[in-house]
Nucleic acid binder design. Structure first.
Lengths: 208, 208
DNA sequence: GAGCTAATGTACCAGACGGTACATTGATCG
DNA sequence: CGATCAATGTACCGTCTGGTACATTAGCTC
């Protein structure tokens, strides 16, 4: 067998990502991961040290990849309202196309974040989505079209909630309400909706 | 040992709910569940048949309980705007106080809803929250204060997303953005926010 | 209070699982 | 081209895990 340390490591990481996202941390089997690669279980221990460290590597890599993808989201209309609507919709698209990542996040939350907490590296990287959000928000406030009592993180929380839920809870929600959140017919409606909501919220005068 | 079939069964179900919500389906251990009760593993097989059927019973019972609790949510202001805001806020409270249930739902979604799909009984029971939502929405439309192009299920989706996310994703979101979604200081703000958002959205004229 | 059965307890099994000891081989460098 | 070591493969281990065979007991009925 031709040797290539980098390829072996990378393949293990890719396959492990699939299996962990599919089965959860406890549900994933080290033997299963190994069998789906061209190498053996032994290599998992050689390169990562064990199941736990492999999962940590998967989590770190997945977050790194998602940040990279988020950076590609770019809106720079002069019109802050249009920009905000577009940011919401692009965030929606982004979530819909990264469902393995959303699954890993859900799994990590089931474990009360005990693994992610050990990955200091993730904390330092700024979150591109929030940075852009802040910028648009400021422009909108300056132009007098956005209310000034809403924080960027609150807007992000709202958009994230909606987009993550679409993907993460589609099975139970879909079953209980007999709708398919995934269906191509419904997709444009759901996509437009979050933009509508955010813009309506931000352009409404404070009540109190 | 004094015998009481009903008590034994109920205790197993209660403890199993805790353990499954805590550890996930694969992570939960039958021996662990048994040890936390006053009875033995044998009884799990006697009353439920196995780990899988026990989990199904837990899921069914949890949903039944949550429907019961939802029915207690009651708003009947004459003012549809106030009622809508209150419904959003009570839904928020409801989620925050039922975090074990939210965890079970998250776990079930990690499994792509393969278990819940076998529980036909859950489908038939109407969802109290949506029924009330529909009623308020109609009153608001009639009064001319709510837009008429928004479906009840869409509003429910928005509110659910927000409320579920608070609870389900607090660990990763909290870590990455260095905020505590659980903190008593932030709670009132987060609670009021979803009401604000929903009302702003519904009282805004359609754009298109 | 004898007989019966639902309910419970004990002890164990077979296979799965994460992990490792030990052998081997391919690439690199003097 | 031989030495060296990173990289890989094989075969195995100890423990955990879901599940069960078999024995026993509490409580009910007649």
């Amino acid at each position: 067998m031709q040797r290539d340390a980098e390829r072996t490591r990378a393949e293990l990481l890719t396959v492990a990502t699939e299996v962990f996202a599919e089965e959860g941390y406890s549900g994933a089997r080290v033997d299963d991961i190994a069998e789906r690669t061209r190498t053996t279980k032994r290599m998992i221990y050689y390169y990562f040290g064990g199941k736990e460290q492999l999962y940590l590597a998967v989590l770190e890599e997945a977050y790194r990849g998602i940040r990279e993808a988020e950076r590609a989201i770019d809106v720079d209309h002069t019109d802050p309202v249009a920009a905000m609507r577009q940011l919401a919709e692009l965030t929606f698209d982004h979530h819909v196309t990264h469902d393995a990542f959303i699954r890993l996040v859900a799994i990590e939350n089931v474990h009360r974040g005990e693994f992610i907490r050990r990955l200091d590296s993730l904390r330092t990287l700024a979150q591109p989505a929030v940075t852009q959000l802040e910028e648009i928000l400021q422009r909108g406030r300056a132009a007098g079209v956005f209310r000034d009592d809403v924080q960027a993180l609150d807007v992000h929380l709202l958009i994230s909630s909606y987009c993550v839920f679409q993907v993460a809870n589609k099975y139970t929600f879909g079953y209980l309400f007999d709708v398919d959140l995934d269906s191509p017919e419904r997709r444009p409606h759901l996509r437009a909706m979050i933009g509508e909501v955010v813009v309506a919220w931000l352009t409404t005068r404070p009540t109190a």
